[in-house]
Amino acid sequence: MTLTSTLSLQLDENGTFSESLDLDQFKLPFSGLSNYVMCDITMKENGTGVLVPSSCYMSITNRLAILQLDHARIGSYYNKVHLPFSATLTDEKGKPLASRAIKVRIDGADVKCLTTDANGRAETVIDTSSYYKANITLSAVYEDNDLCYGRDEYSSYYINSARSYPYDEITLYRSFSKSQSHIRIRPLQDLLSCDKRYSMQVDYLFTEGGVGKGATTTSIKYI
């Protein structure tokens, strides 16, 4: 069933508008802890009557915190060298939550417990040398029971389930190396500038089969 609500607003001098949407009218069932709404927006130009349509998707949740993994920094693969981990925790308004405990898990098992900094970020490196599966699931969870309750009561299943907490995950695939040599260049956080020098951090594991017998030096190029 599709429920709709219509608003008619005037743009300000900057061509923008803001308005609060009363979600109570939609009677959203939060048994799964999340919902979404689609917004169809049409702007009508005064004088010409020209109509300009647009649309957007908004996720609605009763969690009072949002946890997101930094997928770009983590990447899609893991190997025998350390895996970089980074996640950000914010409140329902997008403001960072500092000094909060974040659990890091691989395939559901806890591997580290981190504390967010002033920017709501938690960063570390994870030793994945003991993992051999074709793929692993890296996840982060913020175990906090702060929820925005509506009229309906929540069952103990949703309150106690791991997925009832702010949570994010990513599937990582094992990279193959015939020589069992591996290398990973840790990505930089900031945008790169052509007129500056940067220090790169490289994690590596070289075998004799990869670099040759008797090798004492190697050259790593970042392209």
Rank of each mutant, 00 (worst) to 15 (best):
V125A: 02
K93V: 12
L83R: 01
R174T: 08
S177Q: 04
D168C: 04
L191S: 15
T90F: 04
D110S: 07
H182R: 00
V104Q: 02
A87H: 04
D107A: 05
P96E: 08
D146R: 12
V141C: 01
G120W: 00
G120S: 11
Y149I: 13
D127F: 05
Y149E: 05
S177D: 08
A109F: 06
D110M: 09
Y132Q: 11
T137S: 12
Y167G: 02
D107S: 09
R163D: 12
T115D: 07
L114V: 12
T171D: 07
H182L: 02
A98C: 11
D107T: 03
S179R: 00
S129E: 07
A109D: 13
D144V: 06
G94Q: 06
D107P: 05
G94A: 09
S179F: 05
A109S: 14
Q189W: 10
L172Y: 12
I106V: 13
S86D: 15
D146G: 09
T90M: 03
I102P: 14
L89F: 02
D146C: 10
Y131T: 03
G94W: 04
R163M: 12
C194Q: 09
D195W: 10
Y142V: 07
R197F: 12
N135G: 04
S177P: 03
D110A: 13
L192K: 09
S193D: 07
D195S: 15
P166Y: 10
S199A: 09
T115Y: 01
D168F: 02
I170D: 11
V104M: 00
C194D: 11
D91W: 01
K103N: 13
S129Y: 02
K178R: 05
K95C: 08
A87W: 03
A140L: 05
R121F: 07
D127I: 06
K103R: 06
C194T: 13
D91G: 04
A140K: 00
Y173N: 02
D195F: 14
D190G: 13
E92R: 02
Q180G: 07
P187I: 03
L97W: 01
S179I: 04
S99K: 05
R186Q: 06
K133M: 11
S179E: 14
D107Q: 03
S99Q: 10
R151K: 12
C194L: 06
S199F: 13
C194F: 08
S129C: 10
D168I: 01
V111R: 03
E123G: 05
K133R: 10
S175W: 09
I183Q: 04
T88Y: 05
Y173C: 00
E153T: 15
S161Q: 01
K196L: 09
T124W: 02
C113R: 06
G120K: 00
V141W: 01
K95Y: 14
D110Q: 08
R105G: 11
S139A: 14
S177E: 05
L192Y: 09
D110C: 08
G108K: 03
S161A: 14
S164R: 05
S155C: 14
Y167H: 06
R121E: 15
V111N: 05
D107F: 02
G120V: 09
L192V: 14
K178C: 12
L89T: 01
Q189S: 12
D195Q: 15
I159R: 09
C113I: 14
G150S: 08
Y157S: 11
R197S: 06
K112G: 00
D146F: 15
A134T: 15
T124P: 04
K196D: 07
